[in-house]
């Protein structure tokens, strides 16, 4: 029981660390929150709404994302897209990620 709980907690921490990069990587074109959530899930990364939406707002506040409200199918939706600053940061983050993966591969192989 305690082991399962510990595993879940560690997996949660690991996922939390990659969500920022995952979201930034998928927002080259505008997406609204729910569509991004589904896109990430289709690619194999299940993210809780309670984690993704506040994260999008935080990234926008940091200037890495931009958002705009659009009216579609009589429903307003907030679309997010990577900002100019976010575009500059993304390659650096990808490089950092590649470095982490390489180091961890060495450690775990």
């Amino acid at each position: 029981m305690a082991n399962t709980e510990s595993l879940e907690n560690v997996v949660l921490e690991l996922r939390r660390g990659v969500i920022v990069l995952a979201a930034l990587s998928q927002l080259g074109a505008p997406e609204y929150g729910y569509s991004l959530l589904k896109k990430l899930a289709d690619l194999g990364l299940d993210v809780d709404q309670g984690t993704l939406y506040p994260l999008l707002r935080r990234l926008e506040a940091q200037g890495l994302l931009e958002s705009v409200w659009k009216l579609e199918e009589a429903r307003p939706r907030r679309y997010y897209v990577v900002s100019a600053e976010g575009k500059k940061l993304l390659p650096k983050l990808k490089k950092e990620w590649a470095g982490i993966v390489s180091v961890m591969d060495k450690m775990l192989s």
């Binding site: 939406y53 429903r75 907030r78």
Partner: peptide
């Protein structure tokens, strides 16, 4: 940004 959060939440719930 409370109103903004409310609108986004409503929109998401309606989508779902």
């Amino acid at each position: 940004g409370r109103k903004d959060i409310e609108n986004e939440l409503r929109s998401t719930l309606e989508d779902m």
